[in-house]
Design a binder for these strands. Structure first.
Lengths: 195, 195
DNA sequence: GTCTATATTACGATAGAC
DNA sequence: GTCTATCGTAATATAGAC
């Protein structure tokens, strides 16, 4: 069945979000205009309002989708294993997932201050959920007696900050492969929490 | 000698930079208007142009001053000691300095993308200089045989990312004192690079 | 050095034709 | 669903009086 002439909603919607994510990552939410997003997609500015009620909701939806994807991907990948093996899996998962979605990671961290209070609370909650996943692994290792960290929550935030830092310098096709980067960081993580 | 009536340049200049830093940290460079900065200082927008040629230069000057301060402060504080002791000094210095200037740290990292190319190159050079300070300490420890890191440059970036992450959660007057936070992070840094 | 006033440009969002 | 046109607002930066 041919669609109505001029109807592209099922393809234009994703392209709007894609263009917005790309532009927000490079220029920042406040510096990007709806006209720029529209130009990137190849429509006029007014047409964007068929896909989002406003600019703020467009940002919020991008950030929420990213963090929900992150949590779902880890929950699907997390092994049922010892704390040591689970921490290695988390380390490698975090690096792989975040380097494969650099724009979404960047926007979800840098644009927290661009969110209205109600939206900020939702995003902040998802971020805390992810931190708690790692904190739980560290507490498991403490119980097993294989880790030594005096403040699991703070250690979790410190490790996540270190791992997310990969995105500031890693480029696919560079001197180091992703597997090598994972090994380098796992070595530091492993030792940092060691007894 | 009384100054000319209405002349406050020696005090207004610093207040403009102070207000701009505060607003840029909270709302982002692109989201802050010159009118807002002027209102914060208590002057009209036009008066700001006695202190900066334009908004971009105001941002650039703030970032450059912060990074030059950071480098000068470390160079003045760095001990002439073993790699292990110098790394501990660096860890504690970085946490103390960065938590005491949270707005400048935040702006200098988040607004890199708001800089024009020529300004970006200057700031990026200063940032690399700082990373090299830590990289040099790590190489010294490798030569002494007291550290084990296979990629000193990457380890330096990883450690700086971890340490700077303190700023995302630390608040003076909270449950942990700065000395306790320094000790927590030094424990992780020490182990992460250990043989 | 600061003010008022303004030139110029751009913004987010909406209305209504097709 | 997309377009053209536009409303109402706000931006950076400058000119000239005091």
């Amino acid at each position: 069945m041919a669609r109505t002439q001029g109807s592209h909603s099922d393809i234009t919607g994703p392209r709007v979000r894609e263009a917005a994510l790309w532009l927000f990552a490079r220029q920042g939410y406040a510096a990007v205009s709806m006209r720029q997003i529209a130009a990137e997609v190849g429509v006029q500015a007014g047409a964007l309002y068929n896909y989002t009620p406003d600019k703020q909701t467009l940002l919020f939806d991008l950030m929420r989708a990213h963090l929900e994807d992150l949590l779902a991907a880890w929950d699907a990948a997390a092994p049922d294993a010892s704390a040591r093996d689970t921490l290695e899996a988390f380390t490698r998962f975090h690096i792989r997932f975040n380097t494969s979605r650099a724009d979404a990671v960047f926007v979800s961290y840098m644009e927290l201050r661009s969110l209205e209070p109600a939206n900020f609370a939702v995003i902040e909650g998802l971020r805390r959920d992810y931190e708690t996943r790692l904190e739980t692994i560290l507490r498991q290792g403490l119980a097993e007696g294989v880790f030594a960290v005096s403040e699991p929550r703070i250690a979790a935030m410190a490790l996540i900050a270190m791992l997310t830092g990969v995105n500031t310098w890693f480029r696919a096709g560079g001197r180091l492969s992703l597997a090598q980067v994972e090994a380098l960081y796992w070595d530091m993580v492993r030792k940092a929490v060691a007894v």
